[in-house]
Amino acid sequence: MRILVVEDDEKTAAFMVKGLNEAGYVVDHAATGRDGLFLATSGDYDAAIVDRMLPALDGLSLIQALRAANIQTPILILSALGQVDDRVSGLRAGGDDYLTKPFAFSELLARVESLLRRRGGSGPETRLTVGDLEMDLLARTVRRGGTLIELQPREFRLLEYLMRHAGQVVTRTMLLENVWDYHFDPQTNVIDVHISRLRQKIDKGFEAPLLHTVRGAGYCIRAAP
């Protein structure tokens, strides 16, 4: 899969390119907004990572130009600005996700993978399956191996998000942002308790655990180990 990185800071760009290469992606790099726009319109990328502050053409204008040209490549915005309104303006310009600098590479990777998955999604799904775990989105029921599992509404949303990103690492901030709709820094790891409760319900009594903790990064739901 091809990823475009538009970033003017050489160090950050080199580190991202290296990391993404190691993760198995083909990466192109542009150092200015204008070059970035040129590459994005000419090449076929599966995702783009765009810094907000760029020489020649700023990140938000670049994204607006792309969207105006009907190029729907998923875009992750990088920014040194972490304010909530900055996020909102970034997403409103046509970005798909927003990450504040400096970031952990695992966070960037998780978000890029989430973007790539989003692109793959075709039409509204009614059923999610991971191994023998099934989620019926219409009836809002969850079964594992045919056994009905009772979930609280929030547990259902948490599991739904994890299952929609099955096989991918989902970070704690991604869960907070997408399941709880809050972007904040918890002092204690509140998410872990929710995950362990969910794990109790979907994994307890079954031979193969589905919900895994990825150290230093987040969680992942997957059928095979």
């Binding site: 160090k11 580190f15 990391g19 190691e22 400096p102 952990a104 590479f105 695992s106 230093g216």
Partner: peptide, 17 residues
């Protein structure tokens, strides 16, 4: 200090990988 610290963290992470 955030940026160098993040770099340290990322290097540790890639070492871990």
């Amino acid at each position: 200090l955030r940026s160098p610290l993040t770099r340290v963290r990322n290097r540790l992470e890639s070492a871990l990988a």
